[in-house]
Design a protein around this nucleic acid. Sequence first.
DNA 1: ACAATAACGAACAAAATTGTGAGTGACTTA
DNA 2: TAAGTCACTCACAATTTTGTTCGTTATTGT
Lengths: 121, 121
Amino acid sequence: MRKKNSTNAVNEQFLFQVCELNSALAMISGRWKSQIVYSISQGNNRFHLLKKELPHISEQVLGRQLKELEKHAIIIKKEIPGTVPIGIEYILTGKGKDLVPILKTLCDWGKSYAEARKITI
Amino acid sequence: MRKKNSTNAVNEQFLFQVCELNSALAMISGRWKSQIVYSISQGNNRFHLLKKELPHISEQVLGRQLKELEKHAIIIKKEIPGTVPIGIEYILTGKGKDLVPILKTLCDWGKSYAEARKITI
DNA sequence: ACAATAACGAACAAAATTGTGAGTGACTTA
DNA sequence: TAAGTCACTCACAATTTTGTTCGTTATTGT
């Protein structure tokens, strides 16, 4: 759990208040998180589908990351009516949908410089 | 230091190989890092200027984060000729410069949804 | 003479994130 | 009748990240 008055927590809050950039990054920078968002946007919107997409993730970690994405209102959980036991779907919110093209841009940025050995100014 | 074969490290590598997005995020998601990049882009390109901009950072942590940004070829160090003792300037590489507008977009994304209490789909 | 500045490095400690083991409950399929 | 699926939760352990203490070197300001 987070300590309330650790230097770490205080510094985090300071950065959040300097610029929204820092809170934005905090929301998406956990392990697996942006990959989960991307997978959901591609239609892998069920717990078991995400498990298949990310074979190394444990169910416990997957559950935790989904919960955090939900906390930040990037995804919402929706029960699929008429399923027994009740199935759960994950849906991107408006916020989540707006995030996807930004992740795409970041991905392209990563790709353009992945091979580049020579540093340019 | 990083362990080579921890599940954590193996999972990180797996994600890197799934998509460059994950390596991109790993490069910029450390505490202070993107704020440092932004500050340098605004002209705060000296160690002591960054210290002033980020009053809560310790010099040791600043040094460490600068070194990592350098490792990922986002910034480079440059000696300022004619200064005694030799002054150091931090300069964004092409990669670093390309990153700035992406950070700006992320910042805007954060801002648009910062106030939003209501979740939209 | 004494403090302060610029720009760090190494080693260690604190805190945070990530992964693991065990267990849930109502199904469906073999 | 047994094993498997779906969608998780809880507490704890391993790992990683972040912050702290101490020290450096040369030079300028008071």
